[in-house]
């Protein structure tokens, strides 16, 4: 028993409770280190100690984010820690989002040093990198042996009050925030230095990496709406009751397609929302609010457009990695073209 008191947050799997079938468990705490916490304990030996572990199911967290964060924070607080570790989550999307969310709250509300670890492409990174120190890890749990020393190293620096240097030297993911600094030389001198190197074909480093804009040219507007076939899509997570295709509440790995045939309105007996990123009350009361089938049927009757495409597509746009978004979009778009659809209404939240 020595040094700093650390609490470790993890999910149901690493907590040894179970796999996906246990993803719905509510936050609970354990004394001391659990699972991967043991490796951290060893690395922290002499300087810090894992006094407690807080575990929460990834599914529960994704579907009840506000309550989950509040409860997790409360449980963490009970241990009176000096710092917190969350994850590492590797490439597990819901886990990464939960780790980022907990770390963000710990930093802002408990005002404690906190580190997290996850794979570069984990959706939790883009969501929380600005406010959380995230150490990059491999994409699977075998990377634990490198993740632990890397995370421990930074955690100890934060605890000692040492200012963290820049991300590349220190080994954490770039947070994407611009911070002012004084250079030894004036901007003009730095510019001429840079130009000389650039003209020689030598290596130089820009002080401001240009953002890359992935621009998609919009399609031409419809000239003849009355003759058009319109399709309805949503990433607001509306699904048939029971979510038969099990679209995840966050970090969705899939989209699904269903038929509108014979349906005039997205009523609550037929549909529900699976989206974990907003209060589901109003969407569940009347799913037309997110998937406006009723209005479109009326417009179809009135002849505003020719036909509502019978097939509709849905996914949950909550922490979806950009790569998945692109993939879904291209596949759905190709199919819609084949089906002779002229235009799409895509609802979101």
């Amino acid at each position: 028993m020595s040094g700093y008191r650390i609490v470790h947050y993890m999910n149901q799997f690493f907590g040894g409770i179970g796999g996906e079938e246990s993803a719905g468990i509510k936050p609970e705490s354990r004394s001391g280190a659990v699972g991967p916490g043991m490796a951290f304990s060893k690395a922290l030996q002499g300087k810090a100690e894992i006094v407690g572990t807080v575990i929460c199911g990834d599914g529960y967290f994704a579907e009840n984010m506000d309550e989950a964060v509040e409860e997790v924070l409360r449980l963490i607080g009970e241990f009176k820690p000096d710092a917190v570790i969350t994850g590492p989550a590797f490439n597990a999307g819901r886990y990464g989002t939960a780790c980022g969310s907990v770390a963000d709250a710990v930093g802002k509300k408990l005002k404690l040093p906190v580190v997290s670890g996850m794979y570069q492409e984990n959706p939790g990174v883009d969501l929380y990198r600005k406010s959380v120190i995230i150490i990059p890890t491999s994409d699977n749990a075998r990377g634990i042996k490198d993740a632990v020393p890397a995370m421990t190293n930074i955690l100890l620096k934060l605890l000692s009050g040492e200012a963290l240097g820049d991300p590349r030297t220190e080994g954490y993911l770039e947070r994407g925030i611009r911070v002012n600094t004084f250079h030894p030389r004036s901007g003009a001198e730095r510019a001429v230095d840079m130009l000389v190197l650039k003209m020689r074909g030598e290596k130089f480093e820009t002080e401001y990496p240009m953002p890359v804009f992935d621009r998609v040219a919009p399609a031409d507007p419809i000239k003849d709406l009355k003759g058009a076939k319109i399709a309805l899509l949503t990433d607001g997570g509306i699904v048939p009751t029971g979510n038969p295709d099990r679209i995840e509440a966050s970090s969705a790995t899939k989209y699904a397609t269903y038929s509108f045939e014979g349906v005039r309105s997205a009523t609550s007996d037929l549909y529900q929302t699976a989206h974990g990123g907003y209060d589901p009350t109003y969407a569940n009361q009347n799913p037309n609010r997110v998937l406006p089938l009723d209005v479109l049927r009326d417009m179809e009757d009135e002849g505003v457009f020719a036909k509502l495409h019978e097939t509709w597509y849905t996914t949950v746009g909550n922490g979806t990695p950009v790569a998945n978004g692109k993939k879904f979009g291209s596949e759905i778009g190709a199919q819609l073209k084949k089906d002779g659809v002229d235009a799409v209404i895509l609802t979101s939240t």
Partner: peptide, 10 residues
């Protein structure tokens, strides 16, 4: 021609 002028759009 009512196509979007990309420069204006950007």
């Amino acid at each position: 021609d009512r196509s979007v002028d990309m420069e204006s759009f950007s």
